Simulated scan of single mutants.
Amino acid sequence: MPAFGMDPRILGYLGRALSLELSAVQNYSTQARLAETWGLADAARRFKTEAAEELGHVERVIGRMLALGAAPNASMLRPAGVGRNLRELLEFDHAFENDLVDLYSDAVAYSSRIGDADSRVFFEGLLAEEKAHARELQTWLAELEVGAAV
């Protein structure tokens, strides 16, 4: 049930954010185990770190929803991205992070348009972190490319 006086689209953005962030936790946790299976200890550690960071986002989104008087409800989790090698995992992850960037960019723009400064600031924080994740994944992919050329 939407919080009294709260814009339903803001609550919609928060609900989608919760679904995507929980999906990210599931995704990175799955990929960490897969990397361990492949003997890629460094990659497994990196994926575990990403899962922990995404869990932090989940907690922030839940906290925001509760503060607004809304019951947190993730509507649907995406399947984890699995592949045949590390490159395929990272390509999936990069696309996934870009989906989060798109969601938060839209939420920031909408919050600004309706004059909801608190929501804008909240979504801007998550947007900056997801952009950083996307850049880190792009760098990791580039490092793999360099390593493959050697």
Rank of each mutant, 00 (worst) to 15 (best):
M65D: 02
F122K: 01
E124M: 05
E54R: 00
L68N: 00
V150H: 06
D106N: 14
V82H: 09
G15R: 15
E130D: 08
V82G: 14
K48C: 02
R33P: 02
E54M: 07
V108I: 10
E97F: 04
S111D: 07
S75T: 14
E59R: 14
A74D: 08
L89Y: 11
F4D: 15
R60T: 07
E50C: 00
N27Y: 10
A17Q: 12
Q26C: 12
A117Q: 03
T49V: 06
V61A: 03
T30I: 06
P79Y: 06
V61H: 03
G39E: 08
A41P: 03
F4E: 15
D93A: 01
L55E: 07
L89V: 08
S75Q: 15
G5N: 08
W140M: 02
E124F: 02
G115Q: 00
V25T: 10
R113V: 01
G39L: 05
S119W: 02
T30S: 11
F92A: 08
R64P: 01
S111M: 08
E124R: 03
M65I: 03
V101I: 01
E21G: 05
D106H: 13
L40Y: 10
V61R: 09
R87F: 09
E136W: 12
E97Y: 07
A74I: 09
D106A: 15
W140G: 06
K48S: 07
D42N: 04
S19K: 09
L141H: 01
D42Y: 00
E136D: 12
R120H: 03
A109Y: 07
H94R: 13
I62S: 02
D7R: 01
A148H: 13
A80P: 10
Q138C: 02
P2S: 09
S111Y: 10
R9I: 14
D7Q: 06
S29L: 15
R135K: 06
A32R: 09
A128S: 12
H57E: 03
P79I: 01
K48L: 04
L34E: 09
V146I: 15
R135W: 09
A52V: 00
A128G: 05
S23E: 12
E143P: 02
G81C: 12
G5A: 03
A3C: 14
Q26T: 10
E53M: 04
A35Q: 02
L137Q: 05
A134V: 01
R60W: 09
E129T: 05
L68M: 06
A109G: 02
S23A: 10
K131L: 09
L137A: 07
I10Y: 11
S29K: 04
P8Y: 02
D116P: 01
A74F: 14
A107V: 13
L66R: 00
Y13W: 14
E143C: 05
G5K: 04
A32H: 11
A52F: 04
S112H: 11
E50Y: 03
A149R: 14
F122E: 01
G81P: 13
L77H: 13
V101T: 04
E53G: 01
H133R: 00
I114C: 06
S111L: 08
L126E: 06
L137C: 04
A71M: 11
A74W: 12
A51M: 05
S119N: 04
L141Q: 06
T49F: 04
A71Q: 13
L40S: 06
A32N: 04
D93V: 02
I114M: 03
F47Q: 00
N73E: 13
S111F: 09
V108T: 10
S75M: 13
S75C: 08
S23Q: 11
F47T: 03
A67R: 08
